[in-house]
Each structure stands twice: as C-alpha cells, then as structure tokens.
C-alpha cells in the first residue's frame, strides 16, 4: 500500500466516520433520555436521502404520503385516548399538533416539489419532513409503553424497524438513489488529494455536534433532556414530563438522522433498506461510548469508519464481519466495567 492509497482510505474512513459519529450521537441521546435502543434510526437516514433524491426530480409523493398516513394514525390514537380517559379538554390541541402540523408539512411538500426549488431549499424541506416523522413514530410506537423495560422497548424498536422497511418500500419504491455532490472542488496538500465533498461532510458534522453540545449545555430545554437522562424520577418531580422529553428527543434524533441521510446521499447509492447497516455501525460507535458518553462515541465512530475503510481494502468480503465482530469485545468490556442495576421485572 502506498501513501496515496493510504490517504484515500483514511479520507474515506474519516468521512464515513463523521456520519457514523452523528448517528452515534443521535443513538446515545435517544437511549439516554428514553431508554429506547433506536434500531430504526437507519430507516430515517434512508428516508432523508430518498426524499432529497425525489425532490431533485420534482417529486415528494413518498414522504408526503408517509407523513399523511402517520398523521392519521397518530390522530386516531389521540382520539382513542381521549375517549378512554373521558378527557377531551386537550383533544383539539393534540390533534392540531399530531395531525395538523404533519399534514401541513405534507401539503407544502406536495405544492412546492413540482416547482423544483433551489438545492438548499430542497435540503431544508427534506430535513423538515423527515424530522417531523421522529415525534410521530415516538407517539405511535413508544409513548404508550414508555415505562416498559429496555428489552421490551428494544423488541418494539426491532418491530418498528420491520414496519419502516415495508413503509420505505411502499412509499419510495425499490430503486436506489444517489444525490448530486454538494461540491466538485478538490484540494491538494503535499501530493494528497482531498475532496471538497469530504471536507464538507466532516465540517457539517462537526458544526452539528457543536450546535447540539450548545443546546444541551446552554438552554433550559437541553438541560431538561439531560436531567431526564440522568434521573427520570427526579425529572418528573421537577415537572419535566417524560412524554415531552421523549417527543423532543425523537425530534432531535430524526433531525440528526435526516442530516446523515443528506450527507451520505452523494457518497453511496441508498435503497429503502440501506439504513440498517449504516445505523448498526453507528451503534457500534455508540456502544463503544457505553450508550452514554458522546465524546467516546464520536471517537468510536471514527475508529469504525477507518476500520471499515481499511478492511474493505484488505478483505473486502469480510468487511462487515470484521466491523461487527469488533463490537463483541467492546460490549464485553462495557458490561464488565459499567455498574449495572439489574432490571427488576
């Protein structure tokens, strides 16, 4: 291997690692606040890429349809809950929130998409639409059993992953998509070529990580989420509702995944089912951080990206085997070193 190839592989590894780092961040956040191991995060990522690719062609029927269907499901659940509790005071507000808002976003997409707006607008539309799916799926799948054990929540996650795969195929079709690169510039330093695209991905990831760090440390809502993660009972006693925290967390999580989808779009062809493997690599990183530490998870993501890049060079057939086998010693080390309260069921 010469320096050129090494640099190329390293660049690939770091670019992918940056995306995995973002994903790992979302996974750590979601787990810390809601105890949900968010297996279907990969589908949100895929939806991000596929939505943007659709908008390139002036189409938004896939994502708009999905938003509309989920809005109706959430609205029905709210109505059912109001009837069950004989409590209709908040019904209008919750319907506006759970059905009105997503339907409005779907309508906007439907109207704006054929006009083929500029690329930046397309990206913003994509982020908005996919982000809106986050709280919707939280409401539908997780909120009714928010107090269940981590294992039950994990099985729900896996079931939701199944459902989202099917929904992805239904609304986006089986064809893969790739979005155009954000930039075709490239730079050369000391004989090593660095693509502008890679720089942009890394820079955007870093910017988003910094923004999230500021949110968690400087704002009341950010601190409220941290408080929920640290001590759920304490947070409730301070008046922070778990539903509120869960909804906000899944909104942020979906936003980060949508971002990843947009970033990864120009790098690989994304199919409706491509998200799973990507998100699992995010998981490897998140688990390296013990599903708790953001910096270690980010470092882990970089490690996963590099390991993947180099193993694809030496043993491409066993790339995935190597990455996923790495997780086992990490998991072992994690479970032996973290103090764990046994789940009382």
């Amino acid at each position: 291997m010469d320096l050129q190839i090494f640099a190329l592989l390293a660049q690939d590894g770091i670019t992918n690692g940056a995306v995995y780092a973002l994903l790992a961040l979302a996974l750590v956040l979601v787990f810390a606040v809601t105890r949900v191991i968010w297996v279907p995060s990969g589908e949100f990522l895929a939806y991000g890429t596929l939505t943007l690719a659709g908008l390139q062609l002036g189409k938004a029927s896939g994502i708009a349809g999905m938003l509309a269907v989920m809005a109706v499901v959430a609205a029905l659940m709210e109505v059912a809950k109001a009837i069950r509790q004989r409590e209709t005071r908040h019904l209008a507000r919750s319907l506006a929130w759970w059905a009105g808002a997503p339907l409005a976003i779907a309508g906007t997409l439907h109207l704006v998409a054929p006009m083929q707006p500029p690329f930046v607008v397309q990206i913003l539309l994509t982020l908005t639409a996919v982000t809106a799916l986050g709280p919707l799926f939280y409401r539908i799948a997780y909120q009714p059993i928010a107090e269940a054990s981590v294992l039950v929540l994990l099985i729900v996650s896996v079931a939701l992953h199944f459902a989202l795969l099917g929904l992805g195929l239904w609304f986006f079709g089986a064809e893969g998509s790739r979005t155009p690169p954000f930039t075709s510039a490239s730079y050369e330093w000391g004989g090593i070529r660095v693509s502008g695209q890679s720089l942009l991905v890394v820079a955007t990831s870093l910017a988003l990580i910094v923004a999230l760090a500021l949110f968690f440390n400087r704002t009341l809502y950010g601190r409220a989420l941290r408080a929920t993660a640290v001590n759920r009972v304490g947070a409730r006693l301070a008046g922070i509702s778990p539903t509120f925290a869960g909804t906000l967390t899944f909104t942020l999580g979906a936003l980060v995944c949508a971002f990843c989808g947009v970033l990864i779009g120009p790098i690989t062809t994304v199919y409706y089912d491509s998200g799973f493997l990507v998100s699992l690599k995010g998981f490897v990183a998140a688990i390296i951080g013990g599903l708790a530490s953001y910096p270690i998870a980010a470092a882990g993501a970089l490690l996963v990206g590099l390991l993947e890049a180099f193993s694809s060079y030496w043993a491409s057939a066993f790339k995935e085997v190597i990455v996923f086998t790495l997780i086992i010693p990490v998991l072992l080390w994690r479970s032996l070193t973290t103090h764990h309260h046994e789940d009382e069921e």
Binding site: L220, R223, A224, R226, A227, V230, N231, V233, G234, A235, L237, A238, G239, I240
Partner: peptide, 21 residues
C-alpha cells in the same frame, strides 16, 4: 432518595426545579 441530577451542577439542579414555572 432525593433523586437529584447527580452529574449536573447545583445551579443546574436548582434551575430545573423551576421547569414547571
């Protein structure tokens, strides 16, 4: 059990006490 936010500062704990307000 007090249920404090152990990994957050005293000031953060107090500020969050006012979350409902």
């Amino acid at each position: 059990k007090r249920e404090l936010f152990a990994s957050m500062t005293v000031a953060d704990n107090l500020e969050l006490g006012a979350f409902a307000r």
